[in-house]
Design a protein around this nucleic acid. Sequence first.
DNA 1: TGAATGACTTCGG
DNA 2: CCCGAAGCCATTC
Length: 110
Amino acid sequence: MSKSEGFFYQVHQVAKKIPFGRVTSYGAIANYLGTPKSARMVGWAMNASHNDSEVPAHRVVNRVGLLSGKHHFEGTNLMQQLLESEGVIVKEYKVQDFETLFWDPMKELR
DNA sequence: TGAATGACTTCGG
DNA sequence: CCCGAAGCCATTC
């Protein structure tokens, strides 16, 4: 209902570009959008994304690979199941081998 | 208008 | 990466 859709739109676009079986962080997306301070808003955009476009929000985790947004998904382990469905190993709310699976839009997408 | 909230990050220990 | 505290920013009440 405001210009904020532009910010959400950008976040959605980047999220959609995340390769299969890869993950990224909110800060990475925020940094790519030029607003590293608004990392929290990326999560907010994700919250809005589930209501509109099909955004792989499950591929977006925090800086340590922790599934911080897990509680916002349906059920109790949907996010983890989605990641595991893509071959991502998740243990105790955390992505294993996160540094290897990490996808930085700034370096990869450029 | 002001205060509270949160799917984060960074810094220091 | 574990723990605690502070900063940032958009949205909501």
